[in-house]
Structures are given as structure tokens and as C-alpha cells.
């Protein structure tokens, strides 16, 4: 059942402009990360470890992600859910044996896969770009992959939140408004102390995942709060299951 339902979700994505939104999500991050190249001396120091080219690139990516993801994930979730509101789809699914919460979970699986793919593409393309401009300094694989894994988790939690929000509140402007506000929170969190950023889940967690920061004299490695991000993922997953179970029990 779940396989067929997921396949149907992918079929519903046709003409929903999912591809442009995802392209914007990936291209946005890649383009913004390119700002690292405009740092004076960046392109001259691609072979010089003291120039910290990978750190600069990762640093700009970790600002580009919170700048674009909250709003684009809100758009993505809203598109998926709004079609159900428009099409009387909840009732139809229910009479075919799929209660509303189940539909939300299926949407999370289908579109969540797209979100994961887009996030991996962001990270991969920024890496490819770095190689392309000729960075020969040793690649900080651990930090890079750790950051990528963290934003996959934060993106999924945020996406799940927006799915529920759009499903619960018919007016899709609410979800989009929260998305815009999310950009603001996510960006300001990057300047907050860790304990404060932790108070704004899930947006603040983009900041907790940041592996580098610009200090006077160059980039320094931070100790990203991977455990906090993991906790966010677990808590988000449990809440999502609980809330969608409630949706299942709801009356039409």
C-alpha cells in the first residue's frame, strides 16, 4: 500500500513546479556559496592551506542554506498539501483507505526524498565547484559531510513542520509567512550563542550545524552540535508520527 501511495505522490508532483523550486533551492545555495570566490585573494590561494579555501566555501554555504531553505521548503510543502485541499483529496483518499495522517506521512516520504536529494546536490555541487576553481588543499571531508548530514536532518524536520502546518491551516499564506519568518530566525541564529539558537527549533539548528565561522584573521573550525541536531531529528520524528496519528483519527 505504502509503495503505491508513494508512487502516486510522485505522479501528483507533475506540473506542480516541484522541479523549478528544487532547482532554485540548489542553484540558490550554489550561487550564494560562490560569493566566497569574491573574497580578496581567494582565487590566488586555492593551493595554499593558510588561505583556507575549503573553509571559506563551507562558511558561505552555511550562510546560504539558512538564507534559502526555510522559504523554499515552505513553498514545497505548501504545494504538496494545497492540491489536496483544492481537490477534496483528503476525503477521496480516506474513502480509498488512506486516512489524512497517512497521506501526510506518504507525502513526507515522497517529497522528503526530493528534499534529501536537493540537499545532497547542494553540498555536492559546492564541492564540485571548489574542485573546478582548482582548490588543491586537502578536503576537510569529516566537517563537510558532518555539515551535510546535519542540514539534511534540519531540512527534513522543517519540511515535516510545514507539511503539518499546510495540512492544518487551509490558508497557504500562513505557511509561507512562517517560511519568511523562518529565514529571519535562521539567519539571526547564526549570530546567537549556541544555547540561544537551541531555543528556536528547527530554524536555529541551521546555526548549530555550522562547522566554521569567520573570525578576525580568518576562518576557525567550530564544534558543531551534532548531538543537538540528532535530538532535533528524533524529537521531530516522534512528534510528526504523533500528530499524523491524530490526523488519522480526525473526522471528515
Amino acid at each position: 500500500m505504502i509503495g503505491r501511495a508513494v508512487a502516486n505522490e510522485f505522479a501528483k508532483m507533475r506540473r506542480l513546479r516541484v522541479v523549478p523550486v528544487v532547482v532554485a533551492m540548489v542553484a540558490g545555495v550554489v550561487a550564494l556559496s560562490c560569493f566566497a570566490f569574491t573574497t580578496p585573494g581567494f582565487l590566488d590561494s586555492v593551493g595554499d592551506p593558510s588561505g583556507q579555501p575549503w573553509q571559506w566555501l563551507l562558511g558561505s554555504m552555511s550562510l546560504a542554506v539558512p538564507l534559502t531553505s526555510p522559504i523554499l521548503l515552505a513553498v514545497l510543502a505548501s504545494r504538496q498539501v494545497d492540491i489536496e485541499h483544492q481537490a477534496n483529496g483528503w476525503l477521496f483518499s480516506q474513502t480509498s483507505g488512506l486516512p489524512p495522517g497517512y497521506v501526510c506521512r506518504v507525502k513526507f516520504v515522497a517529497t522528503g526524498a526530493v528534499v534529501v536529494a536537493a540537499t545532497l546536490a547542494q553540498s555536492g555541487l559546492v564541492f564540485a565547484l571548489g574542485t573546478l576553481v582548482g582548490i588543491t588543499v586537502a578536503f576537510p571531508a569529516g566537517q563537510w559531510l558532518g555539515y551535510t548530514a546535519s542540514i539534511v536532518v534540519v531540512n527534513l524536520v522543517l519540511f515535516a513542520l510545514h507539511l503539518l502546518l499546510s495540512a492544518r491551516i487551509g490558508n497557504q499564506l500562513v505557511g509561507l509567512g512562517v517560511g519568511v519568518l523562518g529565514v529571519f530566525v535562521a539567519l539571526t541564529s547564526t549570530g546567537m550563542p549556541t544555547w540561544l539558537a537551541r531555543c528556536f527549533p528547527p530554524w536555529g539548528y541551521y546555526a548549530l550545524a555550522m562547522p566554521v565561522d569567520a573570525r578576525e584573521g580568518g576562518m576557525v573550525w567550530l564544534a558543531p552540535a551534532h548531538l543537538s541536531v540528532l535530538a532535533l531529528g528524533v524529537a521531530g520524528g516522534v512528534l510528526f508520527m504523533l500528530i499524523t496519528r491524530l490526523f488519522d483519527r480526525q473526522e471528515a
Binding site: K12, R14, R15, I83, A87, N88, G89, F92
Partner: peptide, 8 residues
């Protein structure tokens, strides 16, 4: 109301 996705 009749179910059916308008974009399909």
C-alpha cells in the same frame, strides 16, 4: 465536491 487534481 468531485475529487480530482486540477493540475493533472
Amino acid at each position: 465536491s468531485p475529487p480530482a487534481y486540477g493540475h493533472l
